[in-house]
């Protein structure tokens, strides 16, 4: 992926991409106020694939959206790529998100855009890249994901696995420092689910991209470098599978 200039900015050499300390989060107001997260301390090393597990309502998605700059930090601190997110302006959060990649449970592709155009949307958010280079980069990433011959297809004409691979290409194309994935295999069958995550891991590892992935899917746990389990808003288990 040499065609895409890296947009990574320098950060303290030894600071890991994600440093969370004393993080807490609440939803609602007054008596209805309910704690979603508490006392979260977490350091994620560069290039790792970290999976977040836990029952629904355990707070894993909230944690993902907080680190992913999609919610304001209420308590504690999140340092993402060397920058403090607590108290960051909405504009700063948007700027930070441009250095991230997002993969959703439903692929969330734009139905009116072709596979290639959808991938380009992941790149067009960055200014200053010449038109021809963007097209080449989008085509290159699609080819890496085995979709070189599907570039001009609309999402409606792609299979579920193909759509999810287009979504992964969209997340990868901007050379993000961290990718956030929310149950990316939920809509896929066992084999294509495993293949898609394995492919994502391989491409991310080649570039040193960190991945934070929420999943319920036991079939893909073997691919994780680290598995965190949440329960009632707290991290209750932190494992490193031997297989990785």
């Amino acid at each position: 992926m040499q065609t895409v200039p890296s947009i990574a900015q320098p950060r303290p050499q030894d600071e890991p991409p994600i440093v969370v300390s004393g993080l807490g989060h609440w939803f609602g107001e007054g008596n209805a106020r309910k704690q979603a997260l508490g006392d979260i301390d977490l350091v994620v090393e560069s290039g790792q694939l970290v999976m977040l597990m836990g029952a629904s309502g355990s707070g894993k998605t909230t944690l993902l959206t907080l680190i992913g700059c999609l919610r304001d930090v209420q308590e504690g601190s999140i340092r993402l790529l060397g920058r403090e997110l607590r108290g960051a302006s909405a504009n700063r959060l948007v700027e930070s998100r441009r250095r991230l990649g997002f993969i959703f449970q439903a692929h969330n592709l734009h139905e009116s855009l072709t596979a290639h155009q959808n991938v380009r949307m992941g790149l067009d958010v960055h200014e200053g890249v010449p038109e021809a280079e963007r097209d080449a980069a989008a085509a290159h990433v699609l080819a890496l994901l085995g979709l070189g011959d599907r570039a001009t297809y609309l999402p409606a004409n792609l299979s579920g696995g193909q759509k999810q691979r287009v979504a992964i290409a969209r997340a990868l194309v901007g050379n993000p420092d961290v990718i956030f994935a929310d149950e990316p295999t939920a809509a896929l069958d066992k084999d294509s689910g495993y293949d898609v995550v394995a492919l994502l891991k391989r491409l991310a590892r080649a570039r040193g991209t960190t991945i934070l992935m929420v999943t319920h899917d036991n079939r893909i746990l073997g691919l994780a470098d680290r598995i965190l389990t949440l329960q009632d808003g707290r991290i209750v288990r932190d494992e490193k599978p031997a297989t990785s």
Binding site: E95, R97, R98, L100, N108, L109, H110, M121, V125
Partner: peptide, 15 residues
Amino acid sequence: DHLREYATFKAIGYK
């Protein structure tokens, strides 16, 4: 009809 796609683009960093 496109709120979901727009939300996705917002997540990606479009203003």
